[in-house]
Design a protein around this nucleic acid. Structure first.
Lengths: 231, 231
DNA sequence: TTTTTATTGTGAATGAGTTCACATACCACG
DNA sequence: CGTGGTATGTGAACTCATTCACAATAAAAA
């Protein structure tokens, strides 16, 4: 290997940070509101002001994906919104399966926001015999025993895991075996999945713990230090 | 103002990053499992392996709050767990109010994990006359009209906002006026609150959008760029 | 008691993400 | 058609977080 020439490995695959993608979601919603309010263009300054960000941040985030604005004028509201939808991949429908139809699962079935965003729950699974066969918003609950086969047969692309913590890793493993590459997990455990599988976890307890921490010591660590050491 | 002397403002209040606190929650759960499995000590290496982190990360995180380990041996499992509970402020009970008892709200009332972590729902509010006065797991639903007065009277410390998006900002403002300093928001909007109020938002749509993005272009931006520009 | 082994705690180095600052470019108006 | 005003897009500077690497030190073994 020639080490005296600079390797021309200018990585053609720039990696986008998680924060940038989260903010893209924020811009998307902000643009929807701006559109509803009748705006045709918006500056990075105004967008930033509305979402409590900095103008530079907005411009930098967008610049990763191209040049969408007009100098001196700003960004075209509805056009940019469409472009972001395309970037996020929400300009299409996604086939989703819900696994576990307990408290949280039931709430998710009824949650209209998902549907509105193009995420359609096509299958529901549970292991409770009393639930299997019952109807949830027009979807028959399937036996979780048939998970792998049904996931494959029904072209599911995303699974939502809403089973108890102790069962979650097993369910995740089975989804992986069925070829699922994207999962949203509501069980309060850190699931382990292969690198090529995208997993997001909504851990409400962790959020509450963060609130609790912030409340106890307002961001500073002094009190914590003292308390923890004298304890 | 003397500007020639270096201000001795060595900030006694080290700020802890959000990521560190999130990981503290992770360690806390991992330690609970280790305890259940009968371990008395654990090394940063083992803790890291289990949670897919690096040993250095584990040690650095903990070191912000003190020295909890023994060189050559590791950390005492159950003692460290207690210390983290103390740091996170979950070695006590928190009085929580739930605002909005629709799909998500109902699921949260029934969710036992909160209770188990010391977060007790003491009040429930809604604006629907049919729900007001009804009983949810032993708690009478109050009229949201009485929000401020009841929040104050019942020593609520944390509010969980589970109302529709369009009503969320108003509810948040009223919580702020009632002196609430910590809120967990489930409405898909970026709420604006004063700096001294801690707000966390669980936005499931945003998580799905992140999954969608990751699925469409496996972390790289190439396809996005091309698609977005030709569109 | 001394040596070996293991693992912490932490400054220093690296890397990632954010903000700054300004050249660039477009629109509007005269 | 030229000039003024304005906001983008981006390299460079900066700030914050993670990883490295090793001295410090406790336990176990000899």
């Amino acid at each position: 290997m020639s080490s005296h020439t600079t390797t021309p490995k200018k990585p053609r695959t720039r990696r986008i940070s998680e924060s940038t993608i989260r903010r893209l979601s924020i811009y998307y919603r902000a643009l929807a509101r701006l559109e509803a309010e009748g705006y045709h263009t918006v500056s990075s300054k105004e967008l930033a002001r509305r979402e409590r960000l900095t103008p530079a941040q907005v411009r930098k985030d967008l610049s990763f994906f191209g040049s969408f604005g007009t100098r001196g004028l700003g960004y075209p509201v509805s056009e940019l919104r469409g472009k972001i939808a395309r970037i996020l991949g929400i300009d299409r429908m996604w086939n989703v399966a819900l696994i576990g139809v307990g408290n949280i699962g039931s709430a998710l079935v009824a949650y209209k926001e998902f549907q509105r965003q193009g995420f359609h729950i096509r299958r529901i699974f549970d292991n409770d015999q009393r639930k299997i066969g019952s109807n949830h918003k027009g979807i028959m609950v399937s036996d979780i025993a048939d998970l792998e086969s049904e996931l494959k047969a029904s072209k599911i692309e995303i699974t939502v895991i809403a089973v108890p913590a102790h069962a979650a890793q097993d369910v995740a493993d089975r989804c992986v075996r069925a070829g699922i590459k994207a999962m949203l997990n509501f069980a309060p455990v850190n699931l382990k999945v292969p690198d090529d599988v995208c997993l997001r976890t909504e851990n409400m307890s962790m959020e509450l713990e963060y609130l609790s921490f912030s409340r106890v010591n307002q961001g500073s660590v002094e009190t914590v230090l003292l308390d923890a050491e004298k304890a």
